[in-house]
Amino acid sequence: MKQRITTGIIAGALFLGFCLLGGPWYHGLVLVMALIGYYEFVKMTGLPPFSGAALIGYAGVFALVFPWEMLWDHRPLTLFQVGWLVMLVLMAASVVTKNRISVNTVAMLFLGVVYVGVGFYYIAESRHLPNGLFWTFLLLGSIWSSDAGAYFVGKLIGKNKLWPSISPNKTVEGALGGIAIAIVTSLVFAWASDGLLTWERAIFIGLAAAVVGQMGDLIQSAYKRIYNIKDSGNLLPGHGGILDRCDSWIVVFPFVHILMLLPY
């Protein structure tokens, strides 16, 4: 527990420090996290993490997350265009190698590019919005408070298992507690925002951060259970890997952007 707390404090302070700096410092950190996350995803699925096919995936993640707008006025390719090109190259690799790179391998590598690349793209882009520091802290605060609320409420009064076949320690009571605390946290941000965030939108953002964030946690747990592993990596002692710590982030950040819950 002591190692877990120490690692959490150091990693959290480092990430928040880069977030406060913003610009290329923050975006560069997120890009590195994305590439490490994709490495963990590939390794977790049992595929060679530096095979030729995997390198195509790394290139896709890099193209999605790299801060092109800091070099040019706009991205050379949209997210959709990058995704389609990565899909084409991976499928072509299957043909060229006469199916030594199987369709199943192609599908898994492509899934990882979208899952990791798009998730970290929106984590980085949220900081670049007008009032981006506020929006980033709002989402992180809502996610973290949901996690903490689910844990402590579950420990205190949790009796009914939420999804025992995937995550045996999670409870329905904990999940509901996490949702309530995330909404309260988002409302606190609305109160402190001086009109930037309305109460109604704050409720939707808190609800989305909690529900979608908990689903992101369950998705990662399901993958790890399928491949019979405890953690996606060991970069963060006591916490696992990047995907273990960011499993909620990489689904919540895209979700709130796609549903246009952030007023920008």
Rank of each mutant, 00 (worst) to 15 (best):
R100M: 11
S142I: 05
Y223L: 15
A93K: 02
S146V: 03
K230I: 09
V65A: 05
L29W: 03
V89P: 01
L259V: 13
K230M: 07
L187H: 09
V256A: 05
I203W: 00
L218S: 04
I229S: 07
A124Q: 01
V184C: 13
Y26G: 01
I166M: 09
A148C: 10
M44P: 10
V212P: 07
T105R: 12
W72R: 11
T105K: 11
I143C: 03
S94W: 06
P49G: 08
A190E: 03
G195S: 12
G177P: 05
L218K: 04
I242L: 15
D247Q: 06
I205G: 05
F80K: 10
I226S: 14
V32F: 14
V86G: 08
E200G: 14
W249M: 13
F110G: 03
S126Q: 10
V82R: 05
W144L: 11
N131P: 00
T45G: 15
F137G: 00
D147S: 07
T185V: 15
L129C: 00
S126N: 13
I101M: 04
Y39P: 01
V30Y: 06
L129P: 00
V95E: 09
A54I: 07
A209G: 05
L187F: 07
L176R: 04
K159P: 00
L16Y: 04
A202G: 04
A192L: 15
V172E: 04
Y26D: 11
R127E: 11
I258K: 03
G233D: 05
L261W: 10
V184Q: 04
A34K: 06
